[in-house]
């Protein structure tokens, strides 16, 4: 269990780093030497002890620093957190889900005591001690969704189900791979996925929506998604593209190994009890190429995946400008040996 929290930044001087344990438990997203979309879904939580899949909401060495980074982003742009009026109940559901999970899975870090609707929440890493009345938003400093997601790593989209579709009617989004809650809020599943290339033709979204609508209480699922980010930046938002977009041009053959990050999203799907809404947490993990290549299997595989990736996806994932440098750098880690199946290191 994590006791140590890194003192690090996700902007400016970018002091973010992964300890050797954090590298070994990194959720490497490729289970084979090639990549195409798939509805790669499995049950969540559940996975090897110590892996980021073990618990409902993984708390790792980046927790405190990530929450500080979220607070900075929100102070600059409050619209990163929005909840349409009918979503407050779903916010309470989410608050309960996260508080119960953290208190159960990390009892030395978090505590939750309930006396009817009078709750007492303790968050030791963030030094929070809060007594409040469940379902009474006036007893918290923020609305329930904002309150709890200021204390939980990753972005959160709250989806309302109606008319056989899902609507993104609330969310906390500060560590996103170039999408905007302010733009997407109120959209349905097909509308907010419209920019994704190829997938519509492949029928991926029809299947994915049917799957999501069938998600029931007590049966949560996860999938991994990925992209590439220059510098360990959580807030790669369209709103701040002027800050991070130009950084793509700073990659050189000399610095690519430490400056180019694989960005992995651990996405999960949960049906919420009182609101019947679905919450879609999107937890972001970052690791630089050289750290990943410290696991020989990952070095070989990452080289093969990126070398052979469909150019349309290279463009969509936003690293076309650096692809050649990245692939050339990774080639040194690929001796051509076969790789074992599955995502975990050898």
């Amino acid at each position: 269990m994590t006791k140590h929290f890194n003192d690090e930044t996700f902007r400016g001087d970018y002091t973010y780093y992964n300890s050797p344990e954090a590298i070994r438990r990194f959720p490497f997203p490729f289970d084979r030497d090639s990549y195409m979309y798939s509805v790669n879904i499995e049950q969540h939580p559940g996975g090897p002890a110590g892996s980021p899949f073990e618990y409902a909401f993984d708390v790792d060495e980046h927790y405190v620093a990530e929450m500080k980074d979220r607070a900075i982003t929100l102070a600059e742009d409050p619209l990163r957190c929005q909840s349409l009026p009918h979503m407050e109940l779903a916010g309470w559901d989410l608050l309960e889900l996260i508080m119960e999970a953290k208190a159960r899975d990390y009892p030395d870090l978090f505590g939750l005591h309930k006396d009817g609707d009078r709750w007492h929440w303790i968050n030791r890493p963030l030094r929070i001690d809060q007594r409040f009345t469940f379902l009474d938003a006036t007893t918290l400093p923020y609305g329930p969704m904002e309150y709890i997601t200021r204390q939980a790593q990753g972005d959160f989209a709250l989806l309302h189900e109606r008319e056989g579709n899902l609507w993104m009617d609330a969310g906390m989004v500060t560590s996103q791979a170039d999408w905007s809650l302010d733009f997407d809020v109120g959209m349905n599943f097909f509308e907010w996925h419209a920019p994704v290339p190829k997938a519509k033709k492949m029928g991926v979204f029809d299947k994915a929506l049917k799957f999501l609508l069938a998600v029931q209480q007590g049966q949560a699922y996860r999938r991994l998604n990925w992209t590439m980010t220059v510098n360990p930046r959580l807030d790669t938002s369209p709103e701040n593209y002027h800050k991070w977009g130009p950084e793509k041009r700073t990659i050189t053959p000399q610095n690519v190994g430490r400056k180019q990050f694989l960005r992995v999203e651990l996405q999960s799907f949960w049906r919420l009890p009182r609101s019947n809404a679905i919450v879609f947490p999107i937890r972001c993990y970052l690791a630089c190429l050289d750290d990943l290549a410290s696991q020989p299997k990952w070095g070989r595989r990452l080289h093969r995946v990126l070398r052979d990736l469909d150019p349309v996806l290279v463009e969509y994932k936003g690293f076309a400008v650096n692809r050649d440098i990245i692939v050339a750098h990774l080639a040194r880690y690929d001796d051509g040996a076969p790789t074992s199946p599955g995502i975990f290191p050898d």
Binding site: P85, H86, M87, L89, H160, E161, R162, Q216, Q217, G218, Q219, P273, S275, N276
Partner: peptide
């Protein structure tokens, strides 16, 4: 089984 709702109130 666990509860499943196909006839939910619309909170809007």
């Amino acid at each position: 089984s666990l509860p499943l709702n196909l006839f939910a109130l619309d909170p809007r």
